[in-house]
Lab assay of single mutants.
Amino acid sequence: DLSALRVEEVQNVINAMQKILECPICLELIKEPVSTKCDHIFCKFCMLKLLNQKKGPSQCPLCKNDITKRSLQESTRFSQLVEELLKIICAFQLDTGLEYANSYNFAKKENNSPEHLKDEVSIIQSMGYRNRAKRLLQSEPENPSLQETSLSVQLSNLGTVRTLRTKQRIQPQRTSVYIELGSDSSEDTVNKATYCSVGDQELLQITPQGTRDEISLDSAKKAACEFSETDVTNTEHHQPSNNDLNTTEKRAAERHPEKYQGSSVSNLHVEPCGTNTHASSLQHENSSLLLTKDRMNVEKAEF
């Protein structure tokens, strides 16, 4: 173990290094160091905050020279020094078990990766560091076993998940096959086929009936047209017969005018059967003409 005197000496050296690497504005270890034209180094955030307070150039807090945003430059070497100082402080805390008085939040800088452990060898070769390295080497064999167990647990979990997924996939297939086998029997399929065939026959029977009705309507229309044509021909046949009657009536009127007047009046009210309204109107006109002729003949006879 380190003596108290040596611990104090190391602590004083760390404090001196820390004062050199402090920012003059925030009085902390410089984060993202930036250098000016006057070779003074500050935190990048502190300098941008200072420049944004005034429009135009501002003055350096140490030498009062003008500073602009374009004049600022990043210093990589200074950032490396800060990183190495942080590593020294971490090693000091691990070796002594004491917390550094002016320690900052170094938890963000710590890294437990194997590459980081290899890099620590180049920091300080001390008894405390050696003991700590031995402890780490002793704890390393235990870690692979834990990793193997965790991997086995994960693989077993994956296997159970896969088996569950396969079961879920197989179950719908089985149910679907069961439904297909038990849903419709052979008799049901035959009945469905016969039902479809009967429906098709009914459709075939319905369509000819409609065509037959249309044919019957067409035949009825044709018969009505033929009947009207026969009526017209009958009226045409009746007209010459009426003319013959008129000639006979004229002759009778010349011989017996008194008797014919009474008979002509009675004939006005008689309509021949089986004739249309057109034929009756023609008869009325003929009878009126005959009456006028008879009157003329009677007057001539009187004179």
Results as ranks from 00 to 15, higher is better:
S3E: 04
L5F: 07
L5V: 08
R6T: 06
V7F: 07
E8V: 06
E8Q: 08
E9T: 06
E9H: 06
V10G: 13
V10H: 10
Q11M: 02
V13A: 03
I14Q: 13
N15R: 11
A16W: 14
M17K: 15
M17T: 12
Q18A: 13
K19R: 04
K19P: 10
K19W: 09
L21S: 07
L21N: 10
E22P: 14
C23D: 14
C23A: 15
P24R: 00
I25P: 15
C26T: 15
L27C: 05
E28M: 12
L29E: 07
K31D: 13
P33R: 10
P33G: 07
P33K: 08
P33C: 09
P33N: 10
V34Y: 04
V34F: 11
V34I: 09
S35D: 02
S35W: 04
T36Y: 01
C38K: 15
C38P: 14
C38G: 12
C38H: 14
C38M: 15
C38L: 15
D39F: 09
D39P: 02
D39N: 03
H40F: 12
H40S: 11
H40N: 10
H40V: 08
I41R: 10
I41H: 04
C43S: 15
K44M: 01
K44L: 04
F45C: 08
C46E: 12
C46S: 14
C46K: 15
M47K: 10
M47F: 05
L48R: 10
L48A: 08
L48T: 11
K49E: 06
K49P: 02
L50Y: 10
L50N: 10
L51M: 06
L51R: 07
L51S: 09
N52Q: 03
N52Y: 02
N52K: 09
N52G: 07
K54G: 12
K55C: 04
K55R: 03
K55N: 10
S58H: 07
C60W: 14
L62W: 12
N65L: 03
N65Y: 11
N65T: 12
D66C: 02
D66T: 11
I67M: 07
I67F: 06
T68W: 01
T68K: 13
T68P: 15
T68H: 01
R70E: 14
Q73T: 14
T76K: 06
T76F: 03
T76M: 11
R77K: 13
F78Y: 04
S79A: 07
V82A: 09
V82S: 02
V82H: 13
E83C: 06
E83F: 14
L85P: 13
L86C: 10
L86Y: 05
K87H: 07
I88C: 15
I89A: 08
C90R: 12
C90D: 02
A91G: 13
F92N: 14
F92R: 15
Q93L: 13
Q93M: 10
Q93N: 03
L94D: 09
D95E: 12
E99L: 15
Y104Q: 15
F106K: 09
F106N: 07
F106E: 10
K108F: 13
K108T: 01
K109S: 00
K109G: 04
N111Q: 05
S113G: 02
H116V: 09
K118R: 04
K118G: 13
V121P: 03
I123R: 07
I123T: 10
Q125V: 09
Q125G: 08
S126E: 06
S126T: 05
S126K: 08
Y129L: 08
Y129N: 08
R130I: 08
R130Q: 03
R132N: 10
K134C: 01
R135N: 08
L136Q: 07
L137Y: 03
L137T: 05
Q138D: 07
Q138V: 06
S139H: 11
S139K: 06
P141K: 06
P141R: 07
P141V: 09
E142H: 05
N143I: 06
N143D: 09
P144G: 06
S145I: 08
Q147P: 07
Q147F: 01
Q147G: 08
Q147Y: 00
Q147L: 02
E148C: 06
E148K: 12
E148V: 08
T149I: 00
T149W: 02
S150D: 02
S150F: 02
S150T: 03
S150M: 06
L151Y: 09
S152K: 02
Q154R: 02
Q154Y: 01
Q154V: 00
L155I: 00
S156E: 13
N157C: 01
N157V: 05
N157A: 06
N157H: 12
L158W: 01
L158C: 02
T160S: 05
T160C: 12
V161W: 00
V161Y: 10
V161R: 11
V161G: 09
R162H: 01
R162M: 08
L164S: 10
L164Q: 12
L164V: 09
T166D: 08
Q168K: 14
P172S: 00
T175M: 10
S183F: 06
D184C: 00
D184N: 12
S185Y: 03
S186T: 06
E187Y: 00
D188Q: 07
D188C: 07
V190S: 03
K192I: 00
T194I: 03
D200A: 08
D200C: 05
Q201I: 01
E202V: 05
E202R: 07
E202I: 00
E202T: 12
L203Q: 10
L204R: 15
L204F: 10
Q205S: 06
Q205F: 00
T207V: 10
Q209W: 00
G210I: 01
G210D: 03
R212V: 10
D213Q: 05
D213V: 00
E214F: 00
I215R: 14
I215T: 14
I215S: 13
S216W: 00
L217D: 14
L217Y: 01
S219V: 13
S219K: 05
S219R: 03
S219L: 01
A220E: 11
K221S: 02
K222E: 07
K222L: 01
A223M: 02
A224T: 05
C225G: 11
C225E: 11
E226F: 00
E226Q: 15
F227E: 15
T230K: 11
D231W: 00
T233A: 02
T233R: 07
T233S: 09
N234C: 00
N234R: 01
N234T: 07
H237I: 01
H238L: 15
Q239L: 10
P240S: 05
S241Q: 03
N243S: 05
N243I: 15
N243W: 15
D244Q: 01
D244A: 05
L245S: 15
L245E: 15
L245F: 04
N246M: 11
T248D: 12
T248I: 03
E249R: 14
E249L: 02
K250W: 00
A252E: 12
A253P: 07
E254D: 03
R255C: 12
R255K: 08
R255P: 02
H256G: 09
E258I: 06
E258Y: 00
K259Y: 00
K259D: 09
Y260V: 11
Q261N: 05
G262S: 11
S264G: 06
S264F: 03
S264K: 13
N267D: 06
N267Y: 00
N267W: 00
L268A: 06
L268M: 14
H269A: 03
V270N: 01
E271P: 14
E271F: 01
P272W: 00
G274E: 14
A279L: 08
S280P: 09
S280V: 08
Q283E: 13
N286F: 00
L289M: 10
L289N: 03
L291Y: 14
L291W: 00
K293L: 00
K293Y: 04
K293S: 09
D294Y: 02
R295S: 03
R295K: 09
R295I: 04
M296S: 11
M296I: 08
V298R: 05
E299S: 00
E302G: 13
F303Y: 08
